[in-house]
């Protein structure tokens, strides 16, 4: 019986092709497949999306917009009775009300957060609620209460495995000690805060630690160290694109320059800061910086005129929205 030689070769080739195809398929399965990922139910996914959106705007300094998303997140979490997201939403609403100066509202939200957290028993959320209540007390001028609350928050945060917010509470306590004139204590707390923030990689807290350290140095009369710390804070905030943080850093650098009587340099920083505050609609801060510019003009003849800043002093109406937040 005659069998063509190519027939035997063909069989070998077919085997090789099949093997190659099998290997390719296996590679594809390994590369693209994997086990099924844990998928959240749609409502809870929506809650998390709203909360994340709120956080995004919060970090950009767009508090009105952040508040809307946090409110929606709260409503959505109520619909599925997700306690964790509800407490988080109350905490965030408290923080956003606080930063806008709505203190009564902030207190109500934060108390709600603590109430629901009694059911949830989350050390993380409790620490944040206590810390924010401490900030509320500080804003109201009740420094003793603020200190107690921040210390309590610090203890709770320390017991939390992730130690979330630990650096933030340390920063707040360090700031309080600085204001009380206990500069060495302040410096120690702030350095601990910075180390913790650096290990967690949360840039706004890192920037704040540097800023507070700069202010301690300024209070100690070490302007060179102060400038270095404040410049580092600005650098980190710029990297994080933290708009409100950038404005605050520039303001502090401007103030430092004024202390050093470097009027021209001070003007350049204050000009940038006041314009940023204006763009964010922070009228109170604009007024403070306008006064600084007035001093600058009287001392250093810069700026030549305060007219360009007068428009920023007009408080925005209810329908005003920052161009940075659109």
């Amino acid at each position: 019986m005659f069998v063509h030689a190519s027939y035997r070769v063909g069989r070998k080739k077919r085997k090789a092709v099949l093997l190659a195809l099998g290997a390719l398929l296996l590679t594809l399965v390994v590369a693209c497949g994997g086990g099924p990922k844990k998928k959240l139910p749609p409502r809870l996914t929506e809650v998390k999306r709203l909360a994340a959106e709120g956080s995004y705007w919060f970090q950009r300094g767009c508090f009105g917009r952040a508040e809307r998303y946090f409110s929606q997140a709260l409503e959505a979490s109520r619909l599925v009775d997700d306690l964790e997201e509800m407490v988080r939403a109350y905490n965030n609403l408290g923080a956003v009300a606080l930063v806008q100066g709505h203190y009564v509202e902030a207190g109500e939200h934060l108390q709600k957060a603590l109430e629901f957290n009694d059911l949830l028993k989350s050390a993380r959320e409790e620490a944040f609620a206590l810390g924010n209540l401490g900030s509320l007390a500080f804003k109201a001028g009740r420094y003793q209460e603020a200190e107690e609350l921040w210390e309590k928050a610090l203890v709770v945060a320390k017991n939390n495995p992730q130690k979330s917010g630990f650096a933030m509470h340390l920063n707040n306590l360090g700031m309080l000690r600085r204001k009380q004139g206990r500069l060495e204590e302040a410096e120690s707390l702030l350095k601990r805060a910075l180390a913790r923030a650096e290990s967690s990689g949360y840039k706004p807290t890192m920037a704040n630690s540097h800023m507070q350290l700069g202010l301690v140095a300024e209070a100690q009369g070490d302007f060179a160290r102060a400038e270095k710390q404040l410049s580092r804070a600005l650098e980190i905030d710029k990297a994080a694109e933290n708009t409100i943080g950038i404005a605050q850093d520039l303001e502090q650098i401007g103030r430092l320059r004024q202390q050093q009587q470097l009027w021209e340099k001070a003007f350049l920083d204050l000009d940038r800061a006041i314009r940023l505050y204006g763009a964010l609609g922070k009228t109170e801060k604009v007024s403070q910086l306008y006064e600084l510019l007035e001093t600058n003009k009287a001392q250093g003849e810069v700026p030549e005129s305060l007219e360009p800043y007068e428009g920023l002093l007009v408080p925005p109406d209810d329908f005003w929205e920052s161009p940075l937040c659109r």
């Binding site: 988080r88 905490n91 605050q248 502090q252």
Partner: peptide
């Protein structure tokens, strides 16, 4: 997917 986070208010500046 985005993860929600809790925000605390850090007092910056201190004026």
């Amino acid at each position: 997917p985005p993860d929600s986070e809790t925000h605390g208010l850090e007092i910056r500046g201190g004026q």
